[in-house]
Simulated assay, not measured.
Amino acid sequence: MDEAATIDLNISKDRMTSASTEIHDISIAHSPDSDDAFMFYGLATSKVRVPGYRFNHTLTDIETLNRKAMNEQFYDVTAISFHAYPYLQEHYTLMACGGSVGENYGPMIVAPKAYTLDEVKKLRIAVPGTLTTAYLTLKLFAPEIETVTVDFDKIIPAVVAGEFDAGLIIHEGQLTYTRDGLKKILDLGVWWREQTGLPLPLGGNAIRRSLGTEVQVITTNALRESIQHALDHREAALEYAMQFARDLDPTLANRFVGMYVNERTLNYGEDGREAIRKILDMGYERGIIPHKANVDFVG
């Protein structure tokens, strides 16, 4: 397909008739990261369109999105950490696409010097938010560890400045921490694989239940088509995503996007869905999450 072309998703004749008189405004919120930008490229640039639907995009950090979904049900579609899902499951269901899954990689504990795993459990660690899946995985690894919440993009500078013994890094920091002289103490994606044999599910997209099944399915299909469009037109989608690639050159941005936007982003797969349920069940069983998760998917 020519890059200048757009895709109009097929919907039913009844929906076309309704769409001619009614516009569904769907509010979408995601993180200001290159992987999320890549994923939503098709919808954000109107390369993917749905008759009768208008998608409005907001970019906000993931911990803020977790809180807004939990406390306000503010957006129709919102990126969330899987850890946050049990807190908002009454009002949102998970979309069956759009997730970030670590295949034997994930959030990392980094520090200015090397520590053993026993030593790191006694450190004071900066974390990007207590509703992030990174935090949940850290607590599964070491329930007793002391943590302090810091904005995710300020963790590396704070650790370098000596404000914390170590930091739990997410997003692009996973590829750039060595520039600041930091050492990897533990990759939690590797640890999780060793413990469970599963990939590490980090974040996904949730959609408001009150929208109803038809709108949920159409919107989820639109997101899946947006992801596929970006994968099919990688160069243009990467160029768009580069404006959100903090401190990454095009080579690293391409690598980062490849880590978190791939076939699993289109479809979690059975083991991916199992991993989502597994990490939330473990969190509940170990007293980290107060609510048992009832995981369901749309689309």
Rank of each mutant, 00 (worst) to 15 (best):
G212F: 14
I276C: 00
Y85Q: 07
M259C: 07
A206E: 00
Y135K: 09
G272V: 03
A241P: 13
I125E: 13
I125A: 02
G258R: 05
S12R: 02
T137N: 12
A29H: 12
I125P: 08
T132N: 06
V257Q: 12
L59F: 14
V77R: 05
V257L: 14
H233A: 03
I207R: 07
Y135R: 05
W192E: 07
F55R: 01
T130S: 08
T132Y: 05
R277P: 00
F38Q: 10
N205L: 14
E274L: 12
R264W: 03
D165I: 00
A84D: 08
S226W: 08
S18E: 09
N10S: 02
A236Q: 13
V217E: 15
D247K: 14
V190N: 01
G167C: 13
L117D: 01
S46K: 15
P32R: 15
E103Y: 09
Y85P: 09
I155V: 07
G212W: 15
R234S: 11
E194Y: 02
D296E: 01
I185T: 06
L117P: 00
Q89E: 02
F40I: 06
G98V: 14
A79E: 14
V148M: 03
E274T: 04
N71K: 05
V110D: 08
A275N: 11
L123R: 09
D35K: 14
I218E: 11
L238N: 04
F164L: 06
E163H: 13
R67E: 15
T133R: 04
L65F: 15
S18R: 13
T6C: 05
D118G: 01
V298K: 08
I26A: 10
K13R: 11
R273G: 02
E146C: 00
T149V: 13
A114G: 00
R193W: 06
R277E: 14
G129H: 11
G99Y: 07
W191Q: 04
T265P: 11
V127I: 07
V150D: 01
I155H: 08
H171S: 15
V127D: 05
A44C: 07
R67D: 10
V77D: 02
E214M: 10
Y92S: 14
E285M: 03
F141H: 04
S18G: 04
P107D: 09
R49F: 00
I169E: 13
P51F: 02
L200K: 06
Y260W: 12
R208Q: 07
A96P: 01
E103F: 08
G197F: 07
L43R: 04
V160D: 10
H233T: 03
E22K: 12
T17A: 14
E3R: 07
F38S: 12
K122R: 08
P157M: 15
N254H: 09
M259F: 10
K292I: 09
R273P: 00
Y240W: 10
I218L: 10
V110L: 07
R193Q: 13
F152R: 15
D8L: 10
